[in-house]
């Protein structure tokens, strides 16, 4: 109440202007900190967690196929992020292919390789070197890696039949058995 009276008594033109100016300044300052907080939250969020909905995406493979979310239906999907220049990706490349050979005829499992920041030439060379036959494609404008909040290659996400993340591997898998285990777990759900 008191303050109101004060305003009425000595409200002058420059004062009103100053009030307005400082109001704008405060709003800008607070807005800036809100934006900073949002950004920090975003960077500290980390990768997608088990149980979250897995972002669905369309993959245009290097061999010209288009794999849409409809193709995911009723399957366990393994999404592997890799790059041809990534050393630890190479460790698991053959193993992933081996596991793919094991499951590919069952029709229950879909393997999707997403090459991050790769050139087509290098990616194709890598796939040839490691004999990779499952669907692999580039990540246009990093939309897929951003959706999965990927931090570094290699990262792998196993998605169950309901489209939820069943398990993740940040870094390479420890072996064929490890990959089979996480896929079996997802199939069992």
């Amino acid at each position: 109440m008191n303050e109101k009276v004060d305003i009425k008594v000595d409200e002058t033109e420059p004062k009103r202007k100053m009030r307005f100016g400082s109001l704008v300044a405060w709003i800008l300052l607070i807005a800036f900190f809100v934006v900073l907080a949002m950004q920090m939250f975003k960077t500290q969020q980390g990768v997608l967690q088990v149980g979250e909905d897995a972002p669905q995406f369309t993959l245009e493979t290097y061999d010209g196929r288009v794999i849409t979310p409809e193709d995911w239906e009723g399957k366990v999907v393994l999404v592997n992020f890799w790059a041809s220049f990534c050393i630890s990706c190479k460790d698991e490349a053959r193993e992933l292919e081996e596991v793919w050979q094991f499951y590919k005829d069952s029709g229950d499992v879909l393997f999707l390789g997403v090459a991050w920041s790769d050139t087509k030439k290098a990616a194709l060379g890598y796939m040839e070197d490691y004999g990779i036959t499952y669907a692999n494609g580039p990540d246009a404008k990093h939309q897929i890696t951003d959706a999965y909040r990927m931090e570094a290659v290699p990262e792998t996400y196993i998605i169950d039949r309901n489209g939820k993340i069943s398990s993740t591997a940040i870094g390479p898998f420890s072996g064929v058995d490890h990959i089979k285990l996480v896929i079996e777990n997802a199939l069992d759900n």
Binding site: A83, S84, F85, S117, D118, T119, K120, K121, A122
Partner: peptide, 9 residues
Amino acid sequence: EACEMWREE
């Protein structure tokens, strides 16, 4: 290595 590839591209 990645940048080298990009330059090649």
